[in-house]
């Protein structure tokens, strides 16, 4: 699950920003919700059939 990979990355390296590519709308929603709960804001761009999410520490 993409959100599990994001969870691991945020926990292990605690980045100020993180860029994530996903191809599923539900994954976008899951990551956005999880990132929000961890104090990150999320910017979403649609690139054809994929989505680029930029997580930034608030």
């Amino acid at each position: 699950m993409p959100v599990v990979m994001v969870q691991k990355e945020l926990r292990s390296s605690k980045p100020d920003t993180l860029e994530v590519m996903v191809d599923d709308r539900c994954a976008v929603e899951n990551i956005t919700r999880f990132a929000g709960s961890q104090g990150y804001s999320v910017k979403t761009e649609t690139l054809g059939t994929e989505y680029r999410l930029t997580l930034s520490k608030q």
Binding site: V3, V4, Q7, C26, N30, R33, F34, S37
Partner: peptide, 19 residues
Amino acid sequence: SRLCMVGGLRDTMMFGDAH
């Protein structure tokens, strides 16, 4: 709504996300 009987318990256990 993405209603799912598994998703509720799974997300609560994994991310504390109870929506």
